[in-house]
């Protein structure tokens, strides 16, 4: 606790224990979230994914107590959030939403500095932090700090939203469909940038989306939720794709879940027969996704290509069969610990 409050701890663990939210009473009571339990280790991105109305946003809002649970506990670094001072709790949790929620009457700089100013930082410290964060999300502070939200594009607003959520260096970030309001090209770029940022920051993140592809891309862990606010499956993206726990999950992740898994595995993950250079055949760097390698092999109409190592030397021979057997291996592992 004391460490966290000084703002030096970078990430907190997050646990849901039998969390239930019911609206109404007696006969008319209906559950928005039903007996939800899972644990996210510090520094991981956990994605809550599911169809609309499955209670994923309700679950997210129970963490910072915008909604209070009917039953169960949510622990942040082992401490029940209900026992903490609500405003102090919220100031330690970054919050990003689809509509961004930038205050229209304040400049970009003032928006980013909201939480630091609530926490009573000095003006110099606030503006230094604001400039640091704007640079971090790829916006030139000189150009952007004096602008108003209405003068920004959707993508720029979303970056400011992320910068604002990071302002007081919170150990946990809640992100509710943060990239849903921008067009697909900008969304992809924002996702990539955010993952790169997260690689440095290593925050604990609870991320809500209805888009399974986004969940697979962003998540270290995926919690698939279904109607009635129940947890249908919890695990790594690969295990959810390889071993859907139910028909609902299998249907939700899609018929192409095999292909989706190929986006999670790279050439470097394959164990291959050694190979010499073979002129004329396609070559693949170690970071190439299997999905892209397969696509190249099918389009080039060859039986195989050459995998290169980090030094660019031939490492092995990649065939369509090798890619298929990599998928089969994954299928053998246990999905739900």
């Amino acid at each position: 606790m004391t460490v966290r409050e000084t703002g030096h701890a970078r990430a907190a663990s997050l646990e849901f224990h039998g969390v239930t939210k019911r609206y109404g009473r007696g006969e008319s009571a209906h559950g928005a979230v039903n007996d939800l339990s899972f644990a996210v280790p510090a520094g991981a991105i956990c994605v809550l994914v599911g169809p609309s109305g499955c209670g994923k946003t309700t679950s997210l809002k129970m963490v910072n107590r915008l909604i209070e649970p009917t039953e169960g506990q949510i622990l942040l670094d082992g401490v029940n959030v209900m026992t903490e001072n609500v405003t102090a709790l919220r100031r330690r949790i970054g919050y990003v939403i689809q509509q961004v929620g930038l205050l229209p009457h304040l400049t970009v700089g003032r928006n980013v500095a909201i939480v630091p100013s609530l926490m009573g930082w000095s003006k110099q410290r606030q503006s230094a932090r604001t400039d640091e964060l704007l640079s971090l999300v790829g916006l030139d502070p000189e150009r952007y700090r004096g602008r108003y939200p209405v003068q920004l594009s959707g993508g720029e607003r979303q970056r400011v939203g992320v910068a604002r959520a990071l302002a007081a260096d919170p150990p946990l970030m809640l992100m509710d469909e943060p990239f849903a309001a921008v067009d697909p090209i900008v969304r992809e770029r924002l996702q990539d940038e955010f993952l790169r940022l997260q690689h440095e920051l290593a925050k604990t993140i609870l991320f809500v989306t209805h888009d399974i592809d986004e969940a697979i891309k962003m998540g270290d862990l995926i919690a698939v939720m279904e109607a009635g606010g129940r947890l249908a499956q919890f695990g790594s993206p690969d295990s959810v794709l390889a071993h859907p726990a139910s028909d609902f999950v299998a249907q939700f992740v899609g018929e192409d879940r095999g292909l989706k898994r190929l986006s999670l595995v790279t050439i470097a993950d394959l164990s291959l027969e050694p190979s010499a250079a073979r002129p004329g055949l396609p070559t693949f760097g170690p970071g190439t996704k299997l999905r892209d390698a397969l696509s190249v092999l099918l389009a080039a109409d060859t039986s195989g290509g050459v995998a290169l190592d980090d030094a660019g030397k031939p490492r092995g021979f990649v065939t369509v069969d090798a890619i298929a057997s990599a998928l089969a291996e994954g299928r053998g592992t246990v999905a739900n610990p």
Partner: peptide
């Protein structure tokens, strides 16, 4: 309402929301 909720989620108190968000807007 989303804006007010976002302000609340950042740890603004009700009076801060009224004077810092709702009245200016």
């Amino acid at each position: 309402g989303e804006l007010v909720e976002a302000a609340r989620a950042m740890g603004m108190k009700e009076s801060q929301i009224l004077f810092g968000v709702e009245i200016p807007i």
